[in-house]
Design a protein around this nucleic acid. Structure first.
Lengths: 132, 132
DNA sequence: AAGTCAAATAAGAATAATTATCTTTTAAGA
DNA sequence: TCTTAAAAGATAATTATTCTTATTTGACTT
């Protein structure tokens, strides 16, 4: 699916800046605000940091993107995909997606008759294969 | 165990401010920097915010405390306990500990022959029993 | 118990990160 | 096309965090 229709589905206006942000985010996999700004400036030299923040926030509000907040690392952003876990390498800092069935996890976590589970975030840190 | 020996174990100097911070953190369970500062000022009216930040950082470095970074919420801090998961209520904002066996989870998550897992963070959000 | 020293504190300056304000521009529907 | 609400850009304001310097204090030694 392309980003135009994705934005439309989330009732967000289609702008070149937003397309650019989503492209960067997609090719990086996960990216911080500051890296995103660096990259996006290459394409839109006059883009304002405020525009970036505002777009990040509106895309977060609509759940088009997701924030990944790993302990000891800056927040990374990714395009929302099917639920999965993250692995963060303490050596190279890389954030990697890890396939994982969240719904199964929740059954073991809290009593779903008393809690109403909405989202689950699983972040594992350690050494990735390259750094081990 | 009291906080003096806990600090000593982590090779941190015992100061009244640090004892106070740990007391607040313990009674709150999980607390943000700003709430911690509000509370601690009642006890140490002249405490500096820089002191709070520096202590939080040194206690994080030594793993005496742990940061809990839930999506959409400010970072909360807690005294490091045995590994457990967290539940964050999207209605009242409460952070609650949830018993959970992390080591078991990891076995299903990544191939431990290629990855070296150090820590795991599991944060579930939704409605707590009181808000459901 | 007094002396020493590295580390911690306080105060405030400096820097970084995020949000708000205001004007201009633009996407999208009539 | 025209219209309008929303988005972009510029920059100010706010908030969060770190740094600097002088002073104080905890912990260790004698």
């Amino acid at each position: 699916m392309n980003y135009e229709t994705l934005l439309k589905q989330h009732q967000l206006k289609i702008t070149p800046q937003r397309i650019g942000i989503l492209n960067m985010m997609h090719s990086a996999g996960h990216i911080t605000i500051e890296n995103l700004f660096e990259e996006i400036k290459k394409q839109f030299s006059s883009i304002s940091l405020a525009t970036l923040y505002k777009n990040i926030n509106s895309m977060l509000d609509s759940s088009l993107i997701t924030e990944v907040k790993a302990p000891n690392y800056k927040t990374h952003y990714e395009i929302t995909k099917t639920p999965h876990a993250h692995f963060v390498c303490t050596s190279c800092g890389e954030h990697k997606d890890v396939e994982f069935d969240m719904s199964n996890l929740c059954k073991n976590l809290v009593d779903e008759s008393t809690y109403e589970v909405a989202k689950t975030s699983v972040i594992v840190s350690g050494l990735c294969p390259d750094c081990k």
